Computed example of a mutant assay.
Amino acid sequence: MRRGEYKVPGGKLVVAEVEVDDGVLARVNISGDFFLEPDDALGRIDEALRGLPAETSGRELAERIEAATTDAALIGFDARSVGIAVRRALGASTTWSDHSFELIQAGPLQAYQNLALDQVLVEELGAGRRGPMLRLWEWAESAVVLGSFQSVRNEVDLAAAERRGVRPVRRISGGGAMFVEPGTSITYSLYVPATLVDGMSFEQSYAFLDDWVLGALESIGVSATYVPLNDITSPAGKIGGAAQKRLAGGAVLHHVMMSYDMDADAMTDVLRIGREKLSDKGTASANKRVDPLRSQSQMAREDVVTSLLDYFRSRYTTSESKVRSAEFARVEELVESKFATKEWLHRVP
């Protein structure tokens, strides 16, 4: 019997034991610390999966389970999580422990360079020239970073941005605009193979890839939770948000920006929807700073970054790495041909 496990973020553990005979699932036993009513629904889940081809996708597995449990209550797990556990048992999906992560800190970069480096590194992973990576960003300038599909004129007061020296830029992932100044945020990117999020919905993959950072924040006294689809929040207000881009070659870019000590007045001046963003962060007045990480941890930003990295090292297999010279050369090419061009910035006017 092959064994696979999946711990639902914020939920329960699902264990799948499967036996394959002539390319089909001959035996399937699902177990875990979840809750399920009625009792006989567990046998129906096992039976629904028997006889399926071993290459059945996670989505198809989930559909079979859902059809077999229409009258059941699945508590602490769902049909997708069972499919993920089965796919892991079959070796079609991977877990964190299956990978070694390269840790990269490239130092302060211009906004264009940071965004271009994201594209370069995820493409390097997809091409097989890199393994999975975690990169901690540093910013050499203030910027407002638009999601790939956002309108410049709807999101940014360009006159205010110019007056304050804030560079408008556009990233390759979707989601909302982010305002950043040097030393006021903590930004990181995960570059992982699609096998790590195999069978997961987008919502599940967001929570799954950021589960480690919730533990890291808790270790420094910050009470953080994940709010679907892509927000990290706390009792003091929103801490940050995530965005994701999946490449056809099987590589996933997942990046997060968290507020350490943000100038709320500058943000509301530059972002047209700044006041709405502040209300989401629990801030009534623009004439103050948004600082959930600084105020809750009582730590310097550099110490918070060090603590996050130490927590990641303690949880996963890691090695220290650097951006390669050929990768930096590709970054500069992309800055000139794409990220610094008006065509890219204004592709959605």
Rank of each mutant, 00 (worst) to 15 (best):
A300H: 09
A300E: 13
A300C: 01
A300I: 12
A300M: 08
A300R: 13
R301P: 03
R301Y: 13
R301M: 08
R301I: 10
R301Q: 05
R301S: 05
R301K: 11
E302P: 01
E302R: 03
E302L: 01
E302S: 07
D303C: 01
D303T: 09
D303A: 11
D303H: 08
D303G: 00
D303S: 11
V304C: 02
V304W: 01
V304Y: 00
V304K: 00
V305W: 03
V305E: 07
V305N: 06
T306E: 13
T306P: 00
T306V: 11
T306C: 01
S307D: 09
S307F: 02
S307C: 03
S307T: 10
S307E: 12
L308P: 00
L308E: 06
L308Q: 04
L308W: 04
L309K: 13
L309D: 11
L309F: 05
L309G: 09
L309I: 15
D310V: 02
D310C: 00
Y311H: 13
Y311N: 07
Y311Q: 09
Y311D: 08
F312K: 00
F312M: 03
F312E: 05
F312R: 00
F312Y: 03
R313F: 13
R313D: 07
R313E: 08
R313W: 13
S314P: 05
S314Y: 07
S314D: 12
S314F: 06
R315G: 03
R315L: 14
Y316F: 12
Y316K: 01
Y316Q: 07
T317Y: 04
T317I: 02
T317N: 09
T317P: 04
T317Q: 14
T317D: 13
T318I: 10
T318C: 14
T318Y: 09
S319M: 10
S319Y: 11
S319R: 14
S319I: 03
S319E: 14
S319N: 05
E320L: 07
E320M: 06
S321F: 07
S321M: 02
S321A: 14
S321G: 10
S321I: 05
S321P: 04
K322E: 15
K322A: 14
K322W: 06
V323H: 05
V323S: 06
V323A: 07
R324M: 08
R324N: 12
R324L: 15
R324V: 11
R324E: 15
R324S: 11
R324C: 03
S325L: 06
S325F: 06
S325T: 13
S325P: 11
S325D: 15
S325I: 09
A326I: 10
A326T: 10
A326Y: 09
A326C: 06
E327L: 10
E327W: 09
E327M: 02
E327C: 04
E327P: 11
F328E: 15
F328M: 15
F328G: 02
F328R: 09
A329R: 10
A329V: 05
A329K: 04
R330W: 07
V331T: 14
V331A: 11
